[in-house]
């Protein structure tokens, strides 16, 4: 086990290079596409690298269609995605942040009761949670649409937020339960003898000591919410309530005219979560693993 032959070393390094290519190469076209013009893209259909680079795609979307730059000078029609881009980005931020905070709060409360209080019905709650995690979203879409319409939350951000909280809650609970399970009971008991109520011991001891777990769970929830397409697509059809994925989905019919713009939006759309993943990789790995096999 200790000595590594040079042949093995070369083989493994090659394997690593291959895997890295597999992970990163598919992202290259987005970057290249975002920094070139539609004309360059169609100009030489065989070239790997564009002949000319431009920032006009970003200028256009970041200005909400105001700053057309050279490329878009003569174009009158702009899809909703372009004019509503900034708004959609903000919506995505608001939705993902609220969903994260709310989901984390509710999931923490529930996971605590499942793990810290030995009650029979909370174990059923856990089973219900695991099953709900796997309910196909598409089944819920129709009724959710009707429910949201009935309570007047159709075409509102709170409607989107509420639906996403409901759907992500099971997953968050599943991620948190193993953490709380492993949390030493004595700390909580000691706090109770020191003058905390049961709930107080959660607030003062269990939760502060679980910040890594909560962070992991929070990041995962944020990312999934940021990625969510179907819920906002169905609940919010008006442009002012669109989130980034919906804006992108709207481009599906315009993609042959605005392909490079679409790539620019894609790049901005994937940047926040990519950044989170790379920065918080360590926490995420723990959270994702715990969520599948309960630590």
């Amino acid at each position: 086990m200790n000595k590594v032959t040079w042949r093995y070393r070369i083989f493994m390094n090659l394997a690593n290079v291959l895997v890295i290519c597999f992970l990163l190469l598919p992202l290259v076209p987005v970057v290249l596409g975002a920094f070139q013009s539609e004309r360059t893209l169609h100009g030489d259909v065989w070239a790997l690298l564009p002949a000319e680079y431009t920032l006009d795609n970003f200028r256009l979307i970041l200005s909400g269609g105001e700053n057309k730059g050279e490329i878009f000078q003569g174009i009158d029609y702009l899809p909703n995605s372009v004019t509503w881009f900034r708004n959609a980005f903000m919506n995505s931020m608001i939705v993902a942040t609220s969903v994260t905070v709310l989901t984390l709060t509710l999931a923490t409360l529930t996971a605590l009761t499942i793990t810290r209080l030995n009650l029979s019905w909370t174990s059923y709650l856990m089973n219900a949670t695991v099953i709900s995690r796997m309910v196909p979203l598409i089944v819920l879409m129709l009724p959710l649409f009707v429910v949201m319409r009935n309570i007047g939350l159709l075409n509102t951000l709170p409607g989107i937020i509420m639906a996403e909280v409901g759907l992500l809650l099971p997953y968050a609970i599943i991620i948190l339960v193993p953490y709380f399970q492993a949390f030493p009971k004595e700390l909580e008991e000691s706090a109770r003898l020191d003058g905390c109520s049961r709930f107080g011991s959660y607030v003062r001891i269990v939760v502060p000591l679980s910040t890594p777990a909560l962070a992991a769970c929070g990041v995962i929830i944020f990312i999934i919410s940021w990625h969510e397409l179907l819920i906002p697509l169905i609940i919010a059809s008006k442009p002012e309530f669109m989130t980034l994925p919906v804006v992108l989905a709207g481009l599906v019919s315009d993609q042959f005219v605005f392909f490079t713009v679409m790539m620019a939006i894609c790049l901005i759309g994937l940047a926040p979560t990519l950044l989170l993943v790379l920065l918080l990789q360590k926490y995420l790995v723990k959270g994702l693993t715990a969520g599948a096999v309960k630590g």
Partner: peptide, 24 residues
Amino acid sequence: LTKFLILVPWAVPPIVNGFLWAFI
């Protein structure tokens, strides 16, 4: 390094992933 990059594809929003491969 490979381990560090493992989650990169997972970070890509599914819809973006779709367009990304549509481009490819």
